[in-house]
């Protein structure tokens, strides 16, 4: 099997692998960067620790995916700190800044992401690439906790309305949903249609982006509606199949290399110290060990 030995990969296989794995890694890395903004700012100590821990998991997952790219000559440090920001392929969902102090935003974002992650990891379990298949189980089991955490908070925030008096939680969730939903849809947008077809044909993943997107929608739509939230899509009762159309998507889609302005600010921030300290080479205590 070709993917057993990365040195034998042909151009088409290599490009498909790079496209699939870069996307997985970039999503995780950028999401973790955003999560860490909540450290020492979350509403309770418990939620602060939980989110910090989730961020650490996401960095771990990013690293597991960047590792896979190492086999085809791509280096983690170069990919994170030396890459042009336009070459990142994460969804715009993970790069959006939080509305200041809006915990509902991070909770809903986390739900959108973790629900999508569960769907796409399931489609990688039998990947033709042994290293991908080897990693999926570990990542999935850690992501399950994230999903549980997000849903637990979503349900409490959404309940704000019915308990009377405090409608703030529900309203904040709805506002976050209106803002984030179009960006969440970009999770299933293609990097490049030809390469997307190759990913499935070569057995790297056993479902198309459209199939993953549909499955995700079939999970998140009824769930959010059950919480009394309104999802801004018209679904025909007689024909419940929902298709993502251009007018539902934001102008910038992340996957194709277009990003919102917020991404460039975030990029400058996380590469700031690296550039300032001229960390293009790892620090050594001495030139030669003595």
């Amino acid at each position: 099997m070709a993917f057993d030995d990365p040195d034998t990969l042909e151009g088409r296989e290599r490009r498909a692998l790079e496209t699939l794995v870069t996307r997985l890694a970039d999503d995780q890395f950028v999401l973790a960067e955003r999560y860490t903004e909540w450290q020492v700012r979350a509403p309770t100590l418990e939620s602060d620790l939980a989110l910090a821990n989730n961020a650490q998991d996401e960095l771990g997952h990013a690293r597991l995916w960047y590792d896979v790219l190492e086999d085809i000559g791509l280096d983690e440090q170069d990919l994170v700190y030396e890459r042009d920001p336009d070459d990142f392929r994460h969804s715009t969902l993970v790069e959006r800044p939080f509305e200041e102090g809006d915990w509902a935003d991070v909770v809903l974002r986390s739900y959108f992401y973790d629900a999508a992650e569960a769907v796409r990891l399931a489609a990688l379990e039998d990947s033709a690439h042994p290293k991908i298949a080897d990693r999926v189980g570990k990542i999935r089991s850690e992501e399950e906790y994230h999903l549980e955490h997000a849903q637990n908070w979503l349900e409490r925030l959404a309940d704000g309305e019915s308990e009377g008096g405090d409608e703030d939680g529900h309203e904040r969730l709805q506002n976050a949903l209106d803002r984030l939903f179009p960006h969440a849809l970009t999770l299933f947008e293609p990097v490049d249609p030809e390469r997307e077809a190759d990913i499935v044909e070569l057995g790297l993943r056993d479902a198309t982006l459209e199939e993953l997107g549909e499955e995700w929608l079939s999970i998140v739509l009824p769930y959010l509606e059950s919480l009394g939230l309104v999802v801004p899509v018209d679904i025909d009762e007689d024909d419940p199949e929902f298709t993502v159309t251009d007018d539902l998507l934001p102008d910038e889609r992340g996957r194709d290399g277009t990003h919102t302005d917020a991404w460039y600010d975030l990029y400058d921030e996380f590469t700031h110290t690296y550039r300032e300290l001229e960390r293009s080479e790892p620090t050594k205590l001495m030139d030669t060990p003595q």
Partner: peptide
């Protein structure tokens, strides 16, 4: 023990 192990 877990993917984000800082002692990796």
């Amino acid at each position: 023990t877990y993917s984000g192990c800082p002692a990796r």
